[in-house]
Amino acid sequence: MNASMAASVTQAAPRGAQGVQRHSVITLDGIKKTFSSPGADAIEVIEDISLDIKQEEFVSIVGPSGCGKSTMFNIIASLLEPSDGSITLRGSDPKCGARVGYMLQRDLLFPWRTIIDNVCLGLEIQGVRKARRYEMARDQLTRYGLADFADQYPNTLSGGMRQRVALIRTLITDPDLILLDEPFSALDYQTRLVLEEEIVSILKEHHKTVVLITHDIGEAIAMSDRVAVMTQRPTSVKKIYDVGLSRELGSCLKARSDARYQGFFDSIWDDLDIQIAGGES
């Protein structure tokens, strides 16, 4: 591999945070997860994950398939308790889970709610008055060109539009951390590139801290400040790459065509490959 393209493997602060003292939004410390069921051997899915994510950082978690990504997702989203270790979310225990907003591959829009009512879901649960939440939702929908669809049901929208609505629904409750779990993998390639770009800029605009869980190396490099590469199950953090291309260049598309992109890609691919081969032997 070309030396100049080789990725720097450090644990330094993100580029966007240079010179500014930013506090951690989420700290995973020695997370372990073992699934045990009576009569069967316990399965160790996560061996040890320690990760510290600073405010406004965009961190991707990339791993070989079957490395326990969805377990990781559920733990970060506080839907699952780790067997050992601790998660600290902005200094407080995230058990109530209200501060993590997430977005999945499937948009999870409620088919029986109109677009605007879908967007309002979180506000409704938080007890925001109806007039106020409609006003907020309309503002956001207008901002992202979806105002005309406010009173439609989700099944009349295309996949990309539905994902946009899902993002607005996530953002409107103003969570501290946004967790993305392969949010684009059900979309066609063009829509995906457009949405990648759009979501990064929306999230930056809102000063959000983001964790993206994906198997798509390219997506991770194009969008992230840092990429954490996971090992095969039982999972631990193998390496952390300081990428920051999209932040430096201001665009995911530019990041994809940057000279360093391929270097990162090859190194991460190698990291995953070694593990897969190791797992099979």
Binding site: N74, A77, L79, G97, Y102, L104, L108
Partner: peptide, 20 residues
Amino acid sequence: NLINLMRSLGASRREVFTKV
């Protein structure tokens, strides 16, 4: 996943019932 989403938004069991 719909129920998990509701939980992550802080919904009570009753809200999960009525809204989902």
